[in-house]
Amino acid sequence: MTTTRLVVVAGIRDMAGNRWLAAYFAAFVVVAQSLFWFGGTGPQVVLSLLNVVLMVVPLVSLVFGAMHVYASREFVELLLAQPVRRRDLFTGLYLGLALPLTAAFVLGAGIPVLMNRGFGANGIAVLALLVAGAGLTFSCVAIATWIALRTDDRLKGIGMALAAWLATSLLYDGAVLAFASAFGDWPIEKPMLAMMVTNPVDLARVLVLAQVDASALMGYTGALFERTFGSALGSLVALGALALWCVGPWFLAARRFDARDF
């Protein structure tokens, strides 16, 4: 555990000086603040931020995450030559990357909301947005780490991270749309909701939307959606599924880290 703690702290210190991470943080501050400046009210800001979060958080977590794992490969060799256990070291490296990225997002998006008293009546929605973004970061960093650990070619690995981003953010939903169009005559509401659980980006979206009143507006499907994900149990299930999307890839990456040659 000491190993993990030491490596996490070192990772956080290293990331604290990272200009890209600072830019990531600043971008969220600027976007969130300008949403308020342009006269946004609570729920509108949450929904606008949601669009940004769903695109940017996975992209940055995947690509920046993979690049970071590649960049630290030699240092990892040096650390592995010390008397440490691989799993402890891996946990430290993962958290040392995921925690600063999460903090940059949560603070970057959260501070403007706090300053503009955007919590208020939308507290739950804002909280859901921050939790969803954090979960997405942890999940995507794990996926990126896994990709980078199993692909030695850096360019290929970053390409795969980009592909993973495209797949989770766009292609998956495209496929769902195609499915819905093909089987439009069937009662597919429930399969559709199930499909939302099997993609972390959709899960994050669903978690937030269920907390924004807007989804109740959306007729029968909206009501079903609200009932499914808006209830305490539904939110817990969605949160649990998102947690699985963090633990699953993390476990794969950890196993890869244990087994691979450096």
Partner: peptide, 19 residues
């Protein structure tokens, strides 16, 4: 699309829709 296939509504505010 939603008008023709109601269940696609679950994709509301998906980045895919933004695209």
């Amino acid at each position: 699309i939603v008008e023709q296939h109601q269940p696609t509504l679950v994709l509301l505010r998906s980045p895919m829709v933004a695209v």
